[in-house]
Simulated assay, not measured.
Amino acid sequence: MIDTFVALLLAHALADFPLQSDALAQAKQDRSPRALALHALIVMATATLAIAPTRAEALIPLAVLTLAHILIDIAKTYAPNTLASFLVDQAAHIGTLVAIAVLHPTLFGQGLYADTPLLPSIMTAIAGLIIATQAGGYAVGLLVRPFGRAFRAEGLPRGGVMIGLLERGLIFLFVLAGQPSAVGFLIAAKSVLRFDASKRKQKAAEYVIIGTLASFGWALICAYATLALLDHLPPLGIKALKD
């Protein structure tokens, strides 16, 4: 069952983040039929590629999953675009993944990848990285957005977004490599490089602190959740992951 779940989790992470542009997300928010249909196609395609079913009837639960995904997305358009609604939306999506995995536990094992025991572990690591970095960026952005209106942000265009992606990616990799203590050095480095630049602007400093703590916290949660899933899957063969 867990191999089916992690395969679908990777498919979901890909469909909702790297394969969903800002323009597509906005069009979905406006309930554009074309955008919803395109997103449904992406969801179905990624789920099908992740499971690689060998029987036509295996496409039925994937089609149900796709329909549930789009219905959840439509429901989200009626809620304000806040961190809470984003978390509820993602929890609902993950709930549908769990339901499909429970009802169809052999979906992955009966597909083309059945003889690749390490693949679910690799899928878990990739899905965790996407959720830690890209989903985390969206979540942190929603959290700090109200505070950002209090002052005019300065710096490179999308510089903060890139810094956030890099720091969450590094934290995720440090934890999976069994070196969580390295996160402390990352905090110290960011403190020197960024907090000092805003120490004379209290609003900017507080904005950076809130965003940093949220970003680090999100990455740590994703990393340890990924490790928890990996504990139930074949080891990847990287010694550091288990040390």
Rank of each mutant, 00 (worst) to 15 (best):
T4K: 09
F5V: 10
A7S: 12
L8F: 14
A11R: 03
H12W: 10
L14I: 12
L14E: 13
D16W: 13
F17M: 15
S21Y: 09
S21D: 12
S21R: 12
A23P: 08
L24E: 15
L24I: 14
A25L: 11
A27V: 05
R31A: 03
R34A: 14
L36S: 03
L36P: 01
L38K: 10
L38S: 07
L41V: 13
L41G: 10
I42P: 11
I42W: 13
I42L: 14
V43Y: 09
A45L: 15
T46M: 15
T48E: 12
L49P: 06
L49N: 09
I51P: 08
T54L: 02
T54F: 00
R55L: 02
L59Y: 10
L62P: 12
L62S: 14
T66I: 10
H69N: 05
H69C: 02
I70M: 02
L71I: 07
D73M: 03
I74G: 00
T77P: 01
T77E: 02
A79Q: 15
T82N: 15
L83M: 08
L83N: 06
F86R: 05
F86D: 06
A91M: 09
A92Y: 02
A92T: 02
H93R: 05
I94D: 06
G95A: 00
T96R: 05
A101T: 14
V102K: 14
P105Y: 03
T106K: 11
L107N: 13
L107K: 13
F108S: 11
G109N: 06
Q110A: 06
G111R: 01
L112D: 00
D115T: 02
T116H: 08
L118T: 13
L118G: 12
L119K: 04
L119V: 11
I122Q: 08
I126E: 11
A127F: 09
G128R: 06
A135T: 12
G137F: 08
Y138I: 15
Y138D: 15
V140Y: 04
V144F: 06
V144K: 03
R145M: 14
R145H: 15
P146R: 13
A150V: 04
A150K: 08
A153M: 07
E154I: 07
G155R: 02
P157Y: 11
V161P: 03
E167M: 13
R168W: 09
R168N: 14
L170G: 09
L170N: 08
F172I: 11
V175T: 01
A177C: 04
G178D: 00
G178I: 00
G178A: 03
G178P: 00
P180M: 00
P180D: 01
S181T: 05
F185Y: 03
L186M: 01
A188C: 05
A188I: 12
K190G: 04
S191G: 07
V192F: 08
V192R: 05
D196I: 14
S198R: 11
R200S: 11
Q202W: 10
K203A: 05
Y207S: 00
I210A: 09
I210S: 10
G211F: 00
G211R: 00
L213W: 04
A214H: 00
A214T: 03
W218Y: 04
L220T: 05
C222A: 14
A223F: 09
T226F: 08
L227M: 13
A228I: 05
L229Q: 11
L233E: 10
L236Q: 00
I238V: 07
K239H: 07
A240Y: 00
L241D: 03
K242C: 07
